[in-house]
């Protein structure tokens, strides 16, 4: 048996079974964690009753908006920054530092500026994701061969047309890498903000459940977030793989 995929499935299944056994045998007590099968049945029950559907829709919807903003703003600014060498050099230290800065510290200020609604949360999510998109898009733009840009000029393409039809398609595998990170960061931003200060959403429900020892709500919600982020990630990764294979890379 030499297939890595099969091994991966076996290992994952083994881990889940181990967790199940440990929970059922009482090595991990009920207050700490529910056995995996309970989490799954709780999740189905939760989705079926629809009690938390509003919270789920709010969080995922906001994360989606934050993701779209991060992508649009990120890719556009990367194209602009790429043309301005000085600006880019100046921003390099910021990019290197950015993900060590506790962005959530700006949340109170954003609430004052944008009100108590969804806007400050979306802002945090987009703010976290946008730099990953910029950095990866720049990386992709650096790798566009000069001869393709010359070809665009020979075809008398406008700068916008060149970006849309030559530069961005060429850089697309790298932009997708940024997109994968932006998915995670927009979720982190939204959920983190909901943990800190919010009156709804999955993050709020998770911390509410945690404070009330309500594992039957907390674990299914956490599982749902993990499932959503991993499946979106795998979808983008598959797309990325198709693009790379088409170009004879990897």
């Amino acid at each position: 048996m030499k297939s890595p995929v099969l091994w991966r499935i076996v290992i994952l299944a083994g881990l889940v079974i181990l967790l199940e056994v440990l929970c059922v045998a009482g090595v991990i007590d009920k207050l700490t964690m529910q056995p995996p099968h309970r989490i799954l049945t709780d999740l189905f029950a939760m989705l079926a009753t629809g009690a938390l559907n509003k919270a789920i829709a709010k969080t995922l919807g906001n994360a989606l908006i934050a993701f779209i903003i991060a992508m649009v703003v990120g890719v556009t600014s990367a194209i602009v920054i790429h043309r301005l060498r000085r600006v880019r050099d100046t921003l390099e230290p910021l990019f290197a530092t950015y993900y060590a800065i506790p962005v959530f510290a700006f949340y109170p200020m954003l609430i004052v500026l944008l009100g108590l609604g969804d806007a400050p949360q979306i802002f945090i999510g987009a703010m976290l994701g946008v730099v990953a998109v910029i950095v990866n898009t720049l990386n992709g733009l650096d790798r566009v061969p000069g001869v393709l840009l010359k070809t665009a000029r020979i075809n008398q393409m406008s700068p916008v047309d060149t970006a849309l039809r030559v530069t961005l398609p060429c850089a697309s595998p790298y932009i997708l890498t940024g997109a994968k990170l932006a998915v995670a960061y927009s979720l982190i931003g939204i959920i983190g903000a909901e943990f800190i200060m919010s009156s709804g959403g999955m993050g709020y429900e998770i911390s509410f459940a945690y404070n009330n020892f309500d594992n039957a709500t907390m674990y299914p919600l956490i599982l749902l977030i993990l499932l959503v982020s991993i499946s979106i990630n795998m979808m983008i990764a598959r797309w990325e793989k198709v693009l790379m294979a088409r170009r004879g890379l990897r």
Binding site: L12, L187, I191, I230
Partner: peptide
């Protein structure tokens, strides 16, 4: 076998794991 698992772990919003 393991690298894709690490990549998947890298991509999850780890902030949700704090209650666990």
């Amino acid at each position: 076998v393991f690298e894709p698992m690490l990549v998947a772990l890298y991509s999850i919003p780890k902030i949700t794991l704090y209650p666990i």
